[in-house]
Design a protein around this nucleic acid. Structure first.
Lengths: 316, 316
DNA sequence: GCGTTTCCATCATTTATTTCGATTACAGTC
DNA sequence: GACTGTAATCGAAATAAATGATGGAAACGC
């Protein structure tokens, strides 16, 4: 028996686009909401219209409304899309597998845990392995494919093999103990840092390196008092007045609130770091990985928009 | 509000492919039934599998079976596909519009009527206009876009602007009245035709032209006794013994059965004609037109396979 | 009335995906 | 152990999609 395919290709996403256009009464708004440009949505609707051989929307000058055919299809499409998405949820809850992520301590301790928690609600059966690593290793392991995903803190990354998705801008702050003399200054520049004791993260940390480079360029003499792999240790040492440290704000948010540490009004224009997801361009992203990326990007865009990019939700 | 699209593109046709594979328990058979090559179906299923993050089929050496996830999805997919196709039927029944076809008398009289009837059951509101034309005009009008579709009888067509879809091989037969002396021969070659009276179709008919050319090449002298635009007239004249005629078998199927005419055992290897749909390559084919093409090709492949091509059901 | 804005359609270009065909890999059969 | 039928893989060609830019038509402001 022959099963004929009487019709051209119709993507399930077109149905979603259709529904969104119907809801917004606007191609442009729908496109924005869906993360397309307007002409793409137009094209998708046209595909649907041609597939059905009918106009789906009556276009008046400014406003628009569904044609009767469009009206009839709306419910059907809604049902189809719902069934499809329900089925995805149903299956994803049962998905087993590995997802191996590498990230730096700063993020692992403060930004990621709630997201991982949410992820595991959708994919409870996934064996999620999160490795605390230093920057260079993350990059390397993603490149060789040993990690599915890396989450790093760095300046914008350009690499042949690696796709980097900026999640959010990560402000770095210079912290000191509340009694530190620099706390009294209403502005801390490089001059004021001269001769200070620094407490820094381990070698290979991108923001440490950038900071030291800057200090060097400005001729600041400084003294590295301690070098730790542990953020907790750094914070403790700063709190005990052993020196000052440059850390991601998110890592000291609580301490700043508690007034156990103070952010110095340090003005440096050049260091902007971004939390970024990195993955190998050629490696296939399955549903679970894509879901993780989506969680991360959504969590990020709650804050500042990641560099200037219109961060498309998921796009391998 | 932002509607996130969490998932890659999934074509509705993939779901059909999935169902067919599940039904056939075989990628290869499913591919044949669907009009794909095997590797395409494999790729489609892999896409689905990646989208859901699960294997859908357990592949054993020879046999295969659905995984539990596949089993769960089967019903959902079936429902989705049914809803989708029902919606297409629902809408197509309401589609209004024109569909203008040009064809030659031989086909219009014997092959097409039942197909047009079926077409109008699906698209009762379409204004279907069928114009009886001669070959050259059909070609010309399709080329200029004045006809949506042409249905012709010709040898394989190659043209820059025109896409020709072979429907079926159309045998031509040389008919005579039952009492004709050539009926007694067990083989009629060009030699036997020498001096015969021919009754032919109008100028511009492709098979008439081909036949005359052949006769000329073989040095056959003949006498054109009548030249008609009407097949009915030709058949009548042949029946009354005014001469013999070369016509498409389908045009005289009934008369041959009734023994009112006789097919001479004429052996000519060179003339193979095909019933073909022609349409302009660049012209958009809406649902109604595609449906018509599908009806025609399906009707055709009931007979002999059209030239050597694996005639894909619809492919603009 | 006339420019301006807003919104959709269209176009060309780039980019990605799909399809095919050929080949490889593998298991069951003879 | 060669053979057959079946699925996966790979490269190339065909096809489709997304984008950014352009054009046109209706509503809006003045």
């Amino acid at each position: 028996m022959t099963v004929t395919k009487d019709g051209g290709p119709v993507d399930l996403l077109y149905l979603k686009s259709f529904l969104e256009v119907a809801r917004c009464q606007s191609f442009t708004k729908a496109a924005e909401n869906l993360g397309y440009v307007q002409s793409s949505v137009t094209a998708q609707i046209q595909k649907l219209e041609n597939e059905y051989g009918v106009m789906l929307f009556e276009r008046y000058g400014r406003s628009m409304r569904l044609t009767s055919a469009g009206e009839q299809l709306r419910d059907t499409f809604e049902q189809i899309v719902n069934m499809y998405e329900d089925s995805k949820r149903l299956i994803s809850r049962q998905v087993k597998g590995h997802l191996e992520i590498g990230t730096i301590e700063s993020l692992m301790a403060f930004f990621l845990p709630p997201l991982f928690h949410r992820f595991l609600q959708s994919f409870p059966q996934i064996n999620l392995q999160v490795n605390p690593l230093i920057h260079a290793n993350i990059f390397q392991l993603v490149k060789t494919g040993e990690l599915d995903l890396g989450i790093i803190l760095d300046r914008p990354v350009e690499d042949e093999d690696i796709e980097a998705i900026p999640i959010r801008r990560e402000p770095l702050v210079l912290v000191a103990e509340p009694g530190h003399r620099l706390c009294l200054a209403d502005r801390v520049g490089f001059a004021e840092l001269d001769g200070q004791s620094l407490i820094v993260t381990e070698q290979g940390c991108t923001y440490r390196a950038a900071f030291q480079r800057l200090l060097g360029e400005h001729g600041v003499t400084y003294h590295i008092h301690h070098e730790f792999g542990s953020l907790e240790a750094i914070k403790q040492c700063v709190a005990y007045g052993l020196g000052i440290a440059l850390v991601p704000r998110i890592a000291v948010a609580r301490e700043l609130e508690d007034k156990r540490l103070v952010a110095l009004p340090f003005t440096h224009s050049d260091i902007t770091f971004y939390t970024q997801i990195v993955h190998h361009r050629k490696k296939w992203l399955n549903q679970a990985v894509r879901h993780m990326i989506k969680l991360l990007t959504d969590a990020g865009t709650g804050g500042e928009q990641a560099y200037n990019e219109k961060s498309r939700s998921t796009k391998s």
